[in-house]
């Protein structure tokens, strides 16, 4: 069974008289364990698609089955639970909490996990967060606040936050956009490792080299899937 099953999904934004068709009849199926790259020109609807895959946004029409479950029928709390336990999301604009150290930013999903898992101890939470920070190469920046970090470092904190709960589905919106090619490669290596360990990874990228390392590339244009190919 496919992990993600998207059927004829549309998402339109009304801007005055004009309607922006950010998603315009998207048909997609992604299996568990895939490593997928989404490419396409700016403004073609990639971020809109990712928000929607991360059950942060709801489509105007169409159907989205996640893990065999109709997301429309999920309650608000169920969505929160799924996002917390099974999903890691790297936002294009990072979305870190200011005035909070990198470590506490990374701990954030675990704080809410404690509502579901009473065995979450403070020391275990900290341990998991430190380990995630080390995996993105920021073991020495734990106590820095976002405004004391470089753009690339912030991006990596955002990635560490997405990884901290060992998600089965990792959604990354241009995770290497602010990184030099060396750091970018390290991140892709990390994603590939996670993928080998069983996680499904979907990432948006503008970098053809990175797209090349994904098992499958989906190209968007004007809110539509225009190409869907497997890399050899």
């Amino acid at each position: 069974m496919a992990l993600i099953e998207v059927n004829n999904v549309t998402r339109h934004f009304k801007m005055g008289d004009e309607t922006v068709r950010a998603l315009d009849g998207v048909q997609l199926s992604i299996d568990e364990g895939e490593l997928v790259a989404i490419i396409g020109p700016s403004g073609c609807g990639k971020s809109t698609m990712m928000n929607f895959l991360g059950i942060l946004d709801v489509p105007d029409s169409g159907e989205y089955l996640l893990d065999g479950k109709d997301t429309k029928k999920m309650s608000d709390d169920e969505r929160a639970l799924y996002r917390n336990q099974k999903l890691g999301f790297v936002f294009q604009s990072f979305h870190l909490l200011p005035r909070m150290t990198a470590l506490r930013n990374v701990e954030l999903p675990l704080v809410y996990s404690a509502s579901y898992d009473k065995t979450h101890s403070l020391s275990k939470m900290k341990e998991m967060a430190i380990s995630a920070m080390q995996r993105v190469g920021l073991g020495d920046r734990l106590e820095h606040q976002p405004n004391e970090l470089s753009g690339g470092q912030r991006q990596r904190v955002a990635i560490a936050r997405a990884l901290v709960n060992n998600p089965k589905l990792l959604l990354a919106d241009e995770p290497t956009g602010n990184l030099d090619s060396k750091a970018g490669k390290e991140i892709i290596q990390l994603f590939q490792d996670l993928n080998r360990q069983g996680a499904t990874v979907i990432m948006v990228t503008h970098d053809p080299e990175i797209a090349q390392r994904a098992g499958r590339v989906i190209a968007f244009k004007d809110g539509k899937v225009v190409e869907d190919r497997a890399n050899s």
Binding site: D76, D77, R83, L108
Partner: peptide, 16 residues
């Protein structure tokens, strides 16, 4: 507001 969005995105329920 943005902080609320971030918290909700990583799994905070409305009650949290």
């Amino acid at each position: 507001t943005r902080e609320i969005g971030i918290r909700r995105a990583v799994g905070a329920r409305r009650v949290d």
